[in-house]
Simulated assay, not measured.
Amino acid sequence: MRRLATRLWRLLRPVQSRVMWLLNAKFVVGVTGVVRDDEGRVLLLKHRMWPPGRQWGFPSGFARKGEDFRRTLVREVKEETGLDVEAGRMIMLNSGFRTRVEVAYEARLLGGELRLAPFEILEARWCAPDDLPHDVQPVCHSLVRGSAPRGSDCDSAPRA
C-alpha cells in the first residue's frame, strides 16, 4: 500500500502543490508592531473597528499575499499613522486562531508626521510601558515587555 501511495504521489508531482493547497487549512496573517520612540514610549492606537472596551492596541493589519511580514508592519504603520518605522525582532508568533496566524515585531520610530487614517483609527497615544490605557488589548501588556504571551509559539525569537 505504501509503495502504491508513493508512486501515486510521484505521478502527481506537477500538481502536488495544488493538491496540498486543497487539503490544508488556509490562513490570513495578522501583523502587529510594538513601535517605540527614542524615549521608550510605545505607540497605541484606538481602532474604530475593534470591539468597544478593547479598542486600544498596537498598529496592526493583515499581510498581503507574498508580502514579507516586516514589510507588512512598515506598510500598516504608515497607512494608519503616517509614521515611518523599522521592524526589529519578532516577539510573538501564534497560530491558535481558527483561520488566522498572529505575528508581532518590535519596531523603532524613524520619523514622519502623525496623520491618523480616520476610517480605521480614532486616536493615537504615546504611552510609557507601565502606563497603558485600562481598556488596552490584554496581549499588549506582555508584548510591551518584549515577550510573547503564554501559549505563544515564539517565547524567545532570535534577533533579526
Score class of each variant (00 low, 15 high):
Gly30Ala: 08
Leu93Gln: 05
Lys26Gln: 10
Gly61Glu: 06
Leu116Ile: 03
Leu22Ala: 05
Gly57Ala: 12
Gly53Leu: 05
Trp126Ser: 07
Pro52Trp: 03
Trp126Phe: 09
Arg108Tyr: 15
Arg36Glu: 07
Glu79Leu: 15
Leu83Phe: 10
Arg48His: 09
Met49His: 14
Pro52Ala: 08
Arg100Cys: 01
Asp130Thr: 02
Gly33His: 04
Glu80Trp: 06
Thr99Ile: 01
Leu122Phe: 07
Val28Ala: 10
Leu22Cys: 03
Ala63His: 03
Cys140Tyr: 07
Arg64Lys: 15
Gly61Trp: 12
Glu67Ile: 05
Pro51Asp: 03
Val31Thr: 07
Lys26Thr: 02
Ala104Asn: 12
Leu83Cys: 10
Arg100Ser: 04
Ala107Pro: 12
Glu76Pro: 04
Arg115Lys: 10
Asn24Ala: 04
Asp135Cys: 13
Leu22Asp: 02
Arg89Leu: 00
Gly33Thr: 05
Lys65His: 07
Cys140Ile: 11
Ser142Lys: 15
Pro133Trp: 15
Lys65Asp: 05
Gly88Ser: 07
Leu83Pro: 14
Thr72Trp: 14
Glu79Ile: 08
Pro133Ile: 03
Gly88Glu: 08
Arg98Cys: 00
Arg100Ala: 05
Ala117Met: 12
Ser95His: 06
Leu44Cys: 08
Arg75Asn: 11
Val29Glu: 12
Ala25Phe: 08
Pro133Lys: 11
Val77Ala: 11
Leu132Glu: 11
Arg98Ile: 00
Arg108Ala: 14
Ala117Arg: 15
Met92Gln: 08
Asp38Val: 02
Asp38Met: 06
Asp135Leu: 12
Phe62Gln: 04
Leu45Lys: 09
Glu67Arg: 13
